[in-house]
């Protein structure tokens, strides 16, 4: 279904690009929560490119990791009478009064990557439960039956449980049918690779190396898992998942020691958000946007219009996607790979 919506969206955008006159002279603002984390620079470049390509103006503010500063930022943007405010909320509750003020001033808002629960806003993010589903699907493709180990993230992070929910949606039936056995399942303190390595070593010891697949909830932990497997000579023959599109993980995918890394491409998210902001500025109602679905899995269960993008699956066969997107150089991705074993490496 997601693929279809993405296709519809692209179609609609092509249509929009054919009539650029419509979008002229609108102002799209982005209120960033911080630029301390490097990734937001990638998001900004993508949004800016999409906005200016349609002939609109891009303005931005940086809340520098403060909820108060962000409220003032948005106040300022409302005074400037911008057309759409895209918000990466620092605090998803403290932001709500600012959203109401914008709504009262007739300005449309978008929640970018971080959800705040206001029914008037559009929520755009990657499908997080989908990440778990994708991981499990790719691992299951390689090892449809056998003993599985689950290396989960930190027990204090709701995302760890969230991901596991998605994983179990895919594998639940096979586990019930006895095709897949849950041999080890453990949380990993602080998502730390070295803890994941210890947990994996203990898992291999207690099962006497009888493990066929490991569902690791991110790439960092996957590095620990692979190190533990390598010490038993099992790296490469056991399916291992991960997420984040870590450069080292992409290299492991090329080497064959990791099966899949689910990658949330910030450029893709930013580009889509910029394009949607253009359409909203032109007067498209939020619930009439192409590909919009209802989302109510937030803390308070408020139903919002949302666009959930499907993350990119990086496997041996799709490696070139990350290279072509400029996320990783071919040299780095293919370091140590035997010639001819991976298509993208040549």
């Amino acid at each position: 279904m997601l693929k279809a919506t993405v296709a519809a969206l692209t179609g609609a955008l092509l249509l929009g690009a054919a009539v650029p006159a419509l979008a002229k002279d609108k102002t799209i603002a982005v209120s960033w929560k911080t630029f301390q984390e490097e990734r937001w620079k990638t998001d900004e470049a993508a949004i800016k490119a999409a906005v200016t390509a349609a002939g609109n103006k891009y303005v931005s503010t940086d809340a520098q990791g403060s909820a108060e500063k962000q409220a003032k930022d948005i106040e300022g943007l409302i005074t400037q009478k911008v057309d759409v405010i895209v918000i990466v909320a620092y605090d998803s509750d403290a932001i709500l009064p600012s959203i109401k003020a914008a709504r009262d001033a007739g300005i449309k808002t978008m929640a970018y990557d971080v959800q705040f629960e206001d029914p008037s806003a559009l929520y755009i993010t990657f499908d997080n439960i989908g990440v778990g589903r994708l991981m499990a699907k790719e691992v299951q493709k390689v090892k449809p039956a056998g003993n599985y180990a689950f290396i989960k993230g930190d027990k204090g992070d709701p995302n760890a449980t969230f991901l596991f929910k998605g994983i179990m949606e895919v594998l639940g039936d096979a586990i019930k049918a006895g095709k897949i056995k849950n041999s080890c399942e453990t949380f990993t303190d602080g998502w730390k690779p070295d803890n994941a390595q210890k947990n994996m070593e203990q898992c291999l010891t207690s099962t006497g190396n009888k493990i066929d697949a490991v569902v690791s909830e991110n790439d960092g932990m996957a590095s620990g898992v692979v190190a533990a497997l390598k010490a038993q000579g099992m790296d490469g023959s056991v399916a291992v998942s991960g997420q984040d599109g870590d450069l080292a993980a992409i290299n492991r995918v090329a080497l064959g020691t990791q099966t899949v890394s689910i990658w949330k491409d910030a450029t893709q998210l930013g580009k889509k958000a910029g394009e949607l902001a253009n359409m909203i500025a032109d007067g498209t109602a939020i619930d009439k946007l192409p590909g919009v679905t209802k989302f109510n899995l937030g803390k308070k269960g408020v139903e919002m219009n949302s666009i959930l993008l499907e993350p990119t699956t990086i496997t041996k066969d799709t490696l070139d996607v990350a290279i072509k997107a400029g996320h990783i150089t071919k040299e780095k991705a293919c370091a140590g790979v035997k010639a001819g074993s991976v298509k993208a490496c040549g």
Binding site: K192, P193, Q197, A227
Partner: peptide
């Protein structure tokens, strides 16, 4: 020892 064992260096190494 830690980074050689993990065969990787990450900024989370040694936390706690």
């Amino acid at each position: 020892i830690s980074s050689a064992r993990l065969n990787a260096a990450s900024n989370a190494l040694g936390q706690f």
